[in-house]
């Protein structure tokens, strides 16, 4: 993996040279084993979270008080009926984890796409037009970066009634400045390039130049690294759930499962630990992929 990166752009197959920057990054990342492992694990987890609940035929919210605190299969007294055991209300933890995973993935993905679109748009506009527009937009991002995401999120979600939409909005609101900054600086240097000047001289409108010329060149590298943010947003979702400002019960989320299990940590340690392990596994697979993409991008951009 790292050797491949060290060997640099020369190692990229010649056939790929003509293809788009996005395809080149993907092709280079694919050659890293950790990217393929991450992809396989993530694909499996996504499939499990989509199909698992209906295959297992159990309910995530149905309580079964007779079966409270059932241990997972690998402990004494565990049964195949509840592979990961049950919680304090007798709900099956595997189903709850899978649905929690589905919710976390959805919120992580949608909010990352949201902040990418919002941040990139603002960054493009600020970088392209410069001057006052740029100044105003950058002062706004300055202010927003001077306040930690958590503080902003806790404030908004804590005093309002949290639901999936507000959670996503808060994450987008907190996350866009980083994208705006990156896209702005790349746009500024891209704008001076020959092909952009040529289109402008040929009479292309600003919007056309931004969307059809600059965006396809600069956005794919940013988009791939955004994958790392999906994992970050999923962690935020878990934190919100833990504090009680995430998706509200009875809908299962990792945060609420972990927080619930904390009360029974000594008697039923698996309630908190095992679902959390599943989340960590998913995050790790995303981070492996994101890391490989990031290294591939850096290698390619350095080669240009």
């Amino acid at each position: 993996m790292i050797e491949e990166i060290a060997s640099g752009p020369a190692a990229i197959p010649a056939a790929k040279r003509g293809s788009s920057i996005g395809a080149q990054i993907l092709a280079l990342a694919w050659r890293a084993a950790d990217f393929r492992i991450g992809l396989a694990v993530l694909a499996f987890l996504i499939l499990a979270s989509l199909l698992g609940p209906s295959v297992l035929g159990l309910s995530a919210t149905k309580m079964d008080v007779a079966n409270r605190f059932a241990p997972p299969i690998f402990l004494e007294g565990g049964t195949w009926k509840h592979i990961l055991g049950t919680d304090q209300l007798g709900r099956d933890l595997l189903i709850r984890s899978l649905i929690g995973l589905r919710n976390a993935l959805l919120i992580g993905t949608i909010s990352t796409i949201g902040m990418f679109i919002l941040g990139s748009t603002i960054g493009l506009v600020a970088g392209y037009f410069g001057k006052t527009v740029d100044l105003v937009l950058m002062r706004i991002t300055d202010a927003q970066m001077a306040i930690p995401v958590i503080i902003l999120a806790i404030t908004i979600l804590g005093v309002s009634r949290p639901n999936p939409v507000t959670i996503i909005l808060v994450l987008v609101l907190a996350g866009w400045p980083a994208y705006a900054r990156v896209v702005r600086s790349v746009t500024m240097s891209e704008r001076r390039k020959e092909y952009v000047r040529a289109s402008t001289i040929l009479g292309a409108s600003s919007i056309r130049v931004m969307l059809q010329q600059i965006a396809p060149n600069i956005l794919p590298p940013v988009a791939f690294v955004a994958l790392l943010d999906v994992a970050r947003m999923m962690i935020f979702e878990a934190i919100f759930g833990f504090i009680g400002i995430g998706i509200q019960p009875p809908t299962p989320t990792f945060g609420t499962i972990i927080a619930d299990g904390t009360k029974y940590l000594l008697n039923a340690w698996w309630i908190t630990t095992i679902p959390g392990l599943l989340l960590a596994l998913c995050l790790c697979s995303i981070n492996l992929m994101g890391g490989a993409l990031e290294r591939a991008r850096n290698t390619l951009l350095r080669g240009q």
């Binding site: 950790d34 878990a238 990792f254 945060g255 972990i258 959390g276 989340l279 960590a280 596994l281 790790c284």
Partner: peptide, 13 residues
Amino acid sequence: SVLVSLPNVWLGI
């Protein structure tokens, strides 16, 4: 990569 994948609420517990 592993450390960054551990959610702090879970790791703490």
